[in-house]
Amino acid sequence: MINAVGLRKVYRLKDREVLALDGVDLHVRQGEIYGVVGQSGAGKSTLLRCVNLLERPTAGTVAVDGEDLTSLSGARLRAARRGIGMVHQHFALLSSRTVAANVAFPLEIAGVGRAERRRRVGELLELVGLQEKARAYPAQLSGGQKQRVGIARALASSPKVLLSDEATSALDPATTESILELLRDLNRELGLTILLITHEMDVIKRICDSAAIMEQGVFRESGKVLDLLATPGSLLARSLFPLPPADAPGVVTITYPRQFDEPLMSELTRRFDVDVNVLGGAVETVSGQSVGRLNVGIQGANRAAALAYLKDKGLLVEESTR
């Protein structure tokens, strides 16, 4: 749905240049939620703004729904942008317009008639659960309600793709939860493809099917979240499950990207006569599946066989690097 290849972006300032994107390839499948996570200054916003050409990449191409946006300009670029919704961290609502008029704005831009606008605005406000706030002004709403208006506005022109720049970063945890749920529902019910950027791992864990970890203008890692978790040395796994450092001798990190009902640890002791000592761990629901990650000390004569057994069971076993 979104295919960006070789994206580079250099900001030229008076005295120096800032390399914000240094060769990023981004492939977002139709109907998935793709999260880009990284620290402030990593280039996430720049990447997102390159996707709808708010920022023109210095090099590389961007195609959305099969259309090469980098080759467009003027009226055709504006038309293409109408097919891409965008949600903003600080909502970016017009303070002079009511909620209903804010949601109607993209429809006005697209030249939709008054009656049709009114009908569509009603639908959208219902979709985000804000019918009774139609005549309120943004200043009278809570942060979560403002973001719902922002989402309704982004969906007004029935886009296939939604871009979200830190949509929940200005919200408290409970509100964040409800907005993420809303995005999840929209993704499922409308088949909406969502590209979101965030600095919160939690967002990736809760709703993303795929993810990329961004640092200094490049993707350090990208792919389906569950695949990444099953990849040795995964940064994503380490960030999603911050375990205490496993530097004691014989400690391994075990990741199991699905539910295990078998009593694996007692099995190990029985079969291989090794000492098993669970040092720390966590089980989390990721992409709708429960995923666990444990630091386990395993010692004994048959240690190697025990590890092989675990790998055989489909678990990812990583020896402590230190």
Binding site: L77, R78, M86, F91, A92, L93, F105, I109
Partner: peptide, 11 residues
Amino acid sequence: GVIEASHAMGA
């Protein structure tokens, strides 16, 4: 941000 949002809407 509002001006940028308007650009993103194709205004």
